[in-house]
Structure formats: C-alpha cells, structure tokens
Amino acid sequence: MSAGMYSEKVIEHFRNPRNMGEIKDADGVGTVGNPICGDQMTIYIKVKNDRIVDIKFKTFGCAAAIATSSMITELAKGKTLEEAMKITRKDVADELDGLPPIKMHCSNLAADALHAAIKDYWEKQKKRKKSGK
C-alpha cells in the first residue's frame, strides 16, 4: 500500500482516530479479526434505552483497519441498536470515500465488530433477565 491509494478521509481518520480507547464498564464488547492475518479490532459500547450512548474501539492493523474502526464509531454513536445493526461494511467504506479493493475484505471488519458488540449486549441482557436481575 502507499499513501496515494487511500482517500483523504481514510488518511484523516487514521491520523486522528475518533473514539479511540476502551470502556471499562462496557455493556457490550465485540472482537473480530485475527492478528495472524494482520487485523484485529474490538468495539466497546454503552447502551441506554436501546441506544448507543458511548462507543470506543481498539485496533491492531493497517491504516484502513484503523480508519474503518474510527468511522464506525462515528456512524453508530447515538443510533438505536436496531439502526446500528443495519450499518454495513459498504456503508463504512462509502463514508470513507471508498477503500482500495484489496482492503475491502481484510481490513473492513468494523461493521462486524459493531454487530458483535451489540449481540454481546443482547446476550448479556438475556442472561440478566433469566437470573432475574
């Protein structure tokens, strides 16, 4: 990859990632990817009334992986869980003015990580209801 292959928006998000970090008492956590393949990301969400009120990420990977993670946090913040589940990989890539074709599959995992975090939240809710808390 060279800097010229990425859109300005990808570079901008890579250099100044939004919502980077962890949420210690997150309501849902989703991790996807595999460091062996060069990409791994974790998304943390705080949920209130079925809405994502806070979201953070940590990512190991290339510039595209970091930029897509940053972008998904912007797209998901404030959305209801239903709305957030509808965000696709393509939405993330489009919002970044596109990704190099070779990066579309390997580094565009942010939507998957977000969906995993939401599912994790739902699982935890189910368990909580069962145990009567």
Partner: peptide
C-alpha cells in the same frame, strides 16, 4: 502492524 507504521512515518 507494519503498514500503519509506514503510513505514519511517511507523514
């Protein structure tokens, strides 16, 4: 990861 390292150094 190396690619992001290269991109940062490039800047």
């Amino acid at each position: 990861e190396g690619e992001s390292l290269i991109m940062d150094l490039d800047e």
